[in-house]
């Protein structure tokens, strides 16, 4: 597009009032829909400079960093907000899992409600730890949870647990 005469002096920030939070969230959501995670982090930071404890902005920042594969950064953001009453335990456990800090990750999941996302992550951690029998048990609990392609991991855990002979029967009873 050809540049129009309308100029937007982006550099002079002090002379302008900060944009309204709802405008920032509109921009933030657009970046998320377009998978522009780096931009999303920047806008989330803008929200946080106005409202330092905004839960949605914090969550968006953490998730955008994870989706952008910046696991270390995501984890340090989670740490920096640990005093706020915002539950980022699952995200923290996932980051620890990605850093291969498997025992810490399991520890982090302990005490959480055992919903399907928690069980999924727990099973993946157990698999990496080589605790394949325990892993199989967790996937059995997920059998009726309707999670797409979870049976792929279930089969992997059975094979790794030396229970390849059970795969066919297990797949029949899946769902």
């Amino acid at each position: 597009m050809a540049p129009k005469s309308k100029e937007k002096p982006k550099t002079s920030s002090s002379s302008h009032p900060p944009p309204a939070i709802e405008d920032l969230f509109t921009t933030l959501d657009r970046h998320i829909q377009r998978s522009e995670y780096e931009q999303a982090v920047k806008v989330a930071d803008q929200v946080l400079s106005i409202a330092p404890a905004d839960e949605d902005a914090i969550r968006c920042k953490v998730v955008a960093l994870v989706k952008d594969d910046k696991i270390d950064d995501a984890l340090s953001v989670i740490q920096s907000f640990h005093k706020l009453p915002i539950d980022l335990g699952f995200q923290k456990a996932y980051c620890l899992y990605r850093q291969n800090k498997l025992d810490e990750a399991l520890q982090c999941l302990r005490g959480r409600e055992r919903d399907s996302e928690t069980l999924l992550l727990e099973a993946q951690i157990l698999y990496r730890l080589g605790k394949t029998d325990a892993c199989v048990d967790v996937y059995r609990k997920l059998q009726n949870s309707d999670i797409e392609t979870a049976e792929v991991n279930f089969v992997a855990s059975l094979v790794s647990a030396g229970k390849a002979s059970q795969v066919e029967k297990a797949l029949d009873s899946w769902k």
Binding site: C60, V66, F90, L121
Partner: peptide, 8 residues
Amino acid sequence: LAYNCIDF
């Protein structure tokens, strides 16, 4: 699959 559970 846990990655898919990390959502905005």
